[in-house]
């Protein structure tokens, strides 16, 4: 700290070096500790709007029985997604962010009681449709899963490298549409590997069920891993 004398005041240099995400990260750390103590796996689903997060969950939820699953879903305005998901028979609650383009750890903390259940195995968090903002906010999850649909173009990973780099798994959704599209599958897979070498990728369709078994296997393996750590 250097100081210089002035007229009745000091100029002072103050070193701060504080992470702007510190408040969010502190809550996320608390959530993660709580989930770990209970052996609850938390998956944070991130994609552009309309990539098929809700449709994939609708396909997935019923098939995960007997696992106990709950869902929190973020949306800028509406309650529609949670209503869709409750039809699968699992507790689901909407977090309406009133314009905010991402979920924050505090929102998960305050809405968790809406969907919590005894002996919960798995919590899905469907984030707000956006590939930039949600990436920076830790929600206490075990893994981020990024979805990119076959209709979005092969350069998505290059335009949004941060989320592809941070996510553990990439799901290429709407695989059923490929025959109708001018979609360069090899290029997309190559771009994913460029930003995240060795990244796990699954190609799925919520419409036909293609690839869903592999996705379910991936989830069950993660749940097993988490519970063995807890036991």
């Amino acid at each position: 700290m250097c100081e210089t004398k002035g007229e009745g005041h000091h100029h002072q240099h103050v070193a701060v070096h504080r992470n702007v995400m510190e408040a969010n990260d502190a809550i996320a750390t608390g959530l993660r500790r709580g989930f770990s103590a209970r052996g609850v796996l938390v998956l944070n689903l991130i994609s552009a709007p309309g990539s098929g997060k809700t449709a994939l969950l609708e396909r997935t939820l019923a098939q995960l029985q007997p696992l106990r699953v709950s869902v929190l879903v973020g949306d800028v305005e509406t309650e529609r997604d949670a209503e869709r998901l409750r039809r699968s028979g699992v507790p689901a609650a909407q977090i309406v962010t009133a314009g905010t383009c991402h979920l924050e750890a505090g929102m998960v903390e305050s809405h968790l009681p809406d969907v919590d259940q005894p002996k919960l195995d798995l919590l899905f968090v469907e984030n707000v449709g956006n590939l930039v903002c949600p990436t920076a906010y830790d929600l206490g999850e075990d893994a981020k899963v990024v979805l990119v649909s076959t209709t979005e173009g092969e350069d998505k990973p290059l335009k949004y490298p941060a989320i592809f780099h941070r996510a553990e798994l990439a799901l290429v959704t709407k695989a059923d549409l490929v025959p109708h599209l001018d979609f360069d599958r090899e290029q997309l897979l190559e771009n994913i590997q460029a930003v995240h070498p060795g990244m796990a990728v699954l190609e799925v369709s919520a419409k036909t069920g293609q690839g869903i078994d592999l996705w379910l296997d991936w989830i069950r393996a993660k749940v097993g891993e988490k519970q063995s750590l807890h036991a």
């Binding site: 100029h11 002072q12 103050v14 070193a15 701060v16 060795g198």
Partner: peptide, 21 residues
């Protein structure tokens, strides 16, 4: 391609110039 990000992934308040009485 086997690399770890060590900088450029943070947003940080680094330092300030202030006046004290």
């Amino acid at each position: 391609r086997d690399v770890a990000v060590v900088a450029g992934d943070r947003l940080e308040v680094q330092d300030m110039e202030v006046l004290t009485d």
